[in-house]
Simulated scan of single mutants.
Amino acid sequence: MRDFTWHVFKQTGDIEAYLLYKEMHNLGAAELGSLPGPEDDEGNVADEE
């Protein structure tokens, strides 16, 4: 869906399509931020010192 809104923005220049694209991007980034990633590994010794 994000690709579709970007395509619509590119073709039409419609600011509403761009704002929807950015909102969807931000929501996706927030969802990814809630998942544990490689930086959350327990094997990171630098945080323990």
Rank of each mutant, 00 (worst) to 15 (best):
M1D: 14
R2Y: 07
R2H: 01
D3N: 09
D3A: 13
D3W: 05
D3Y: 06
D3G: 11
F4Y: 00
F4C: 02
F4T: 09
T5P: 06
T5A: 00
W6K: 03
W6E: 03
H7Y: 04
H7W: 01
H7D: 08
H7T: 12
V8E: 09
V8G: 00
V8A: 10
F9T: 10
F9D: 00
F9M: 11
F9K: 06
F9Y: 09
K10V: 06
K10Q: 10
Q11T: 07
G13D: 02
G13I: 01
D14N: 15
D14I: 11
D14L: 13
I15Y: 12
I15M: 12
E16C: 03
E16A: 12
E16V: 14
A17L: 06
A17I: 12
A17F: 04
A17W: 05
Y18S: 06
Y18M: 12
Y18P: 00
Y18L: 13
L19S: 05
L19H: 00
L20S: 02
Y21L: 06
Y21H: 13
Y21N: 08
Y21C: 04
K22R: 08
K22L: 09
K22A: 01
E23A: 13
E23V: 07
E23L: 07
E23S: 12
E23K: 12
E23Y: 05
M24H: 08
M24S: 09
M24P: 05
H25G: 08
H25D: 03
N26K: 05
N26C: 11
N26L: 11
L27S: 12
G28T: 11
G28D: 12
A29S: 07
A29H: 01
A29M: 14
A30M: 02
A30V: 02
A30H: 00
A30D: 07
A30E: 08
E31F: 13
E31W: 08
E31M: 15
L32Y: 00
L32F: 08
G33Q: 06
G33K: 07
S34T: 05
S34C: 10
L35V: 10
L35S: 02
L35Q: 04
P36W: 00
G37R: 08
G37V: 05
G37C: 03
G37Q: 04
G37H: 04
G37L: 06
P38L: 11
P38W: 11
P38H: 11
E39Y: 15
D40V: 07
D40Q: 15
D40R: 09
D41F: 11
D41G: 08
D41Y: 09
D41Q: 01
D41K: 05
E42R: 14
G43R: 02
G43C: 00
G43T: 07
N44S: 10
N44L: 04
N44C: 04
N44F: 13
N44M: 14
V45N: 05
V45G: 01
A46K: 10
A46G: 01
A46R: 13
A46D: 10
A46T: 12
D47C: 01
D47G: 01
D47I: 14
D47P: 00
D47S: 01
D47F: 15
D47W: 12
D47V: 14
E48K: 15
E48F: 15
E49W: 10
